[in-house]
Design a protein around this nucleic acid. Structure first.
Lengths: 141, 141
DNA sequence: CTATTTTGTTTGTACATACAAAATATAAAA
DNA sequence: TTTTATATTTTGTATGTACAAACAAAATAG
């Protein structure tokens, strides 16, 4: 039978890799007490205190509604603070999130090391760039 | 600030592309009345009548519990039938699903054409193969 | 041939994510 | 200055997906 779509279809292969690497990433991020997405969100907020939700949604390529939910959770954990500013909402780090910065960066490095050990450093880095490039082009459609 | 993880981290870039292409795929699959994942599941069942849920879960790289949910929905829509066989469950197509086969294959082609028009046929096909290869290797971990 | 283990499925629950519609707040126009 | 338009966020709701536990059937060991 013809099940070539299992390898030929970018929808399928991209989401498959997404599921696989999410699992690996969650393991590596366990010490942070956060899932990888929340960890990266915190890095952005720590690095750009006062960044708006709109900007965060764009950088992370999630919808504004999703971002609202993320910030709700981080706020509940006292990891960020909201400040309304005109029609935007700015997001600020807390002491607690600044303390987590190092742990998150370490988890991120561990994740990279883990998959690079399997896929090779060169090729996994190249793959990541190709993926970003592809999504940027498709988002323009 | 250092937000290089937005391009260097395979967790992030794979899932980003996954979100982007899922949206495109859902548009192209709209005429089938199914989301892409369900469409591909039906193609597998049509091509291998009596395939077990375990085999389907492996081919699609989702967990067995997820597959149960998928089959529940397709069964409710009269698009597949279950038949218990020992501790396994075999899944069979219905007339309705066989009628949909052509529509699904067309949607799949349209999806491929849509992203190939943006990314290039060669490079999008190569990317898809790289993605599958990467997930196969990471799933061995 | 019974007791234990393994394998496959289902169910309860939880989270990430999206879309559409509603709410909010500023900016622009009249 | 009141009205209208626009940008941002939030809320309601829905789907995909996972894990852990429960369950059922089969395989294996004693």
């Amino acid at each position: 039978m013809n099940d070539s779509f299992l390898r030929d279809c970018l929808f399928f292969t991209a989401n498959r890799l997404g599921r696989t690497i999410t699992k690996l990433a969650e393991e590596q991020f366990a010490p942070t007490g956060l899932t990888p997405m929340y960890g990266y969100l915190l890095l952005l907020v720590n690095g750009l205190p006062g960044i708006t939700q709109k900007e965060l949604a764009e950088k992370l390529s999630v919808t504004p509604s999703t971002l609202t939910r993320f910030v709700d959770k981080l706020e509940a954990k006292k990891l960020v603070e909201r400040q309304v500013s005109g029609k935007s909402v700015q997001v600020f780090p807390t002491d607690k999130s600044r303390e987590l910065e190092g742990t998150i960066r370490q988890a991120s490095r561990n994740l990279h090391d883990a998959y690079a050990a399997v896929l090779g450093t060169e090729s996994s880095d190249a793959l990541s760039i190709d993926l970003l490039q592809a999504s940027l082009e498709l988002e323009k459609m």
